[in-house]
């Protein structure tokens, strides 16, 4: 069976999850991952009500806490990995700030008539430098994870194996998986620790906000107007790889300056050929393992700096 993934906009104020589930013809229990809510993981009453009582919370956050408690050696190793990635991120950010600054300056520069052939290749090269840097960082972090997996083999450790088995059992009786938003790094790390990319891929997945972000091939953090700093979108690390070709951008209306054509253009060109899709309330994207389908009202950042209302993948 090919994978089926549905990405939705934020669900807190105007939930559309049940509509999405119904549209997939799912009427059985739905496994949920709310690990991004951290210690509030179990506060899923609204989700339960919205899905008419069909939720089986996999307790991914809580299980990871129990593993850390029971296996301090593994916990120390995870912290060490975390610290290594943090250092890599600091170095990446240092280089990224300069690379993005150069790209922005070139994109903002007025192009005298007839001089497109002079300026445009420089712009393209500046954006390519940012893309190279993103790819380099993604690869460095991928290497860290690969070394960790090979060195520690977490799936063979008693507590991890037990929780993975319990999750596999819990999933057996469910018809779909819902992945909620929250803290993207905590969600990503705990889903990875508990082997959820493999376990989850066998059933339809509906995800929103951070939940949508972690399922792709790379996780991109973004905010154009933070109270501190330049607002440089950055690659966090590779995602879980359950879909490809889309960078979901939750709360884009609040987080991105969508009326700034230069920033939109840079974002779209930087991550091309992936599609950069604002995922605000009501947005929906469906992935059937090969192709994306955008529902009405779901927009797209385009390489000419516009935000397209109607488009096809």
């Amino acid at each position: 069976m090919s994978i089926r993934v549905v990405l939705l906009g934020p669900q807190r104020l105007a939930p559309t999850l049940v509509d999405a589930v119904d549209s997939l013809g799912i009427d059985g229990p739905i496994a949920s991952i709310t690990a991004g809510w951290e210690e509030r993981e179990g506060e899923d009453r609204e989700l339960e009500e919205h899905l008419r009582g069909r939720v089986v919370n996999l307790r991914v956050y809580g299980r990871a806490e129990e593993i850390y408690e029971a296996d301090p050696e593994l916990r120390r190793a995870l912290l060490q990995r975390h610290e290594t990635i943090r250092k890599l991120r600091d170095l990446y950010r240092l280089r990224l700030a300069h690379a993005l600054d150069a790209a922005r300056q070139l994109l903002r520069r007025d192009c005298p008539e007839g001089e497109e052939s002079i300026l445009e290749p420089e712009r393209a090269a500046a954006i390519e430098a940012v893309r190279d840097l993103d790819a380099h960082h993604r690869e460095r972090v991928r290497e860290v994870h690969a070394a960790f997996e090979a060195g520690w083999r977490p799936e063979e450790r008693d507590d991890v194996a037990r929780h993975r088995e319990e999750i596999a059992q819990a999933l057996k009786d469910t018809a779909a998986l819902g992945v909620a938003g929250g803290h993207v790094n905590i969600l990503l790390n705990r889903m990875r620790l508990l082997g959820l990319p493999g376990l989850a891929a066998k059933r339809p997945i509906v995800a929103w906000s951070a939940g949508a972000m972690v399922l792709g091939e790379q996780v991109v953090l973004f905010h154009d107007s933070p109270p501190q700093g330049a607002g440089n979108a950055e690659v966090l690390e590779p995602g879980l790889g359950l879909f490809r070709g889309v960078i979901p951008l939750p709360h884009a209306r609040r987080r991105l300056r969508l009326d700034d054509a230069m920033r939109v253009e840079l974002f779209a060109r930087r991550f091309s050929p992936d599609l950069c899709v604002p995922m605000d309330e009501g947005a929906r994207l469906d992935w059937n393992g090969k192709k994306w389908t955008a529902h009405d009202g779901t927009r797209l950042l385009t390489e000419d700096g516009a935000v397209a209302e109607e488009w096809a993948a």
Binding site: H223, P226, Q228, H251
Partner: peptide, 18 residues
């Protein structure tokens, strides 16, 4: 207040997407 508080007590803006 926004600039001051967010500098002294930075929030999880970059990591949390609810």
């Amino acid at each position: 207040l926004r600039e001051g508080l967010s500098w002294l007590f930075p929030g999880p803006l970059w990591m949390v997407y609810e």
